[in-house]
């Protein structure tokens, strides 16, 4: 399972491997979030290894 750290601090797990599919599953728009694995940003085409942990960073601000 892939561990996903969400922008609100929650942690979820998913069986999906490709970033694009994970974003789709979470109903997140790829223009509105960045996906990081450690210090690395990941593009939507990247497929993760099982046991990978990623962090979703929201870039949309309301001000």
């Amino acid at each position: 399972m892939i561990i996903v750290n969400m922008p609100d601090g929650k942690q979820i797990e998913t069986k999906k491997r490709r970033i694009k599919d994970i974003l789709k599953e979470l109903h997140l728009n790829e223009n509105a979030v960045l996906v990081a694995r450690g210090e690395d940003l990941l593009t939507p085409d990247i497929s993760l290894e099982k046991e990978d942990e990623i962090t979703i960073i929201s870039v949309v601000s309301g001000g």
Partner: peptide, 17 residues
């Protein structure tokens, strides 16, 4: 916004999220 966020992340700019 995505490009600004990516620039901040890549260059270690620590901002309030």
């Amino acid at each position: 916004e995505l490009e600004v966020g990516a620039f901040a992340f890549m260059n270690g700019i620590d901002y309030i999220k």
